[in-house]
Amino acid sequence: MNIQLILFFVLAAIAAVTSVMVITRKNAVLSAVFLVLNFFALAGLYLLLNAQFIAVVQVIVYAGAIMVLFLFVLMLLNTETEHGLFVDKRGIKFFAILISAFVFVQLAFLIFKGNPSRTLTADEAASINAGTIQTIGHHLYTDYIIPFEVAGFLLLAATIGALVLAKKKFE
């Protein structure tokens, strides 16, 4: 077996298992920890896909910044652990899981039916080139400069919003 395939299966297994863990843990802190693990597995997968820049950003931004914020809030609020997942509203929850499973089957079926790899043959060199920080940076500051500007406004709005909602003094 190819080493890439083995790596893929290991990382995919981690990603899949941790994602299930995230939604099934009673304790929210545990969920968050599993989510961090999941993000690391994804970063690994991105590396497998030659997306080095995204892999690094995934670790720095997602696992590093966003999840720390999550954990920080969790600790700050010190919320009680939930009751067991299937204690109340069992019918609805069961139904929700059923729907999700159905959607998954549907998606998987369509992915196989759409069979994208039939038309898309990976060009290793192009793929590696696409993932470099140079290419992405080039795109970001040429073609996608306007969305980039908008991202600035987005972050400004988010900062103002977070301040309005969470600042201590309330005039």
Partner: peptide
């Protein structure tokens, strides 16, 4: 998709 297309828009 980005990687298999060899096109970096997806990663952007």
């Amino acid at each position: 998709f980005s990687s298999y297309l060899g096109n970096s828009i997806g990663q952007v």
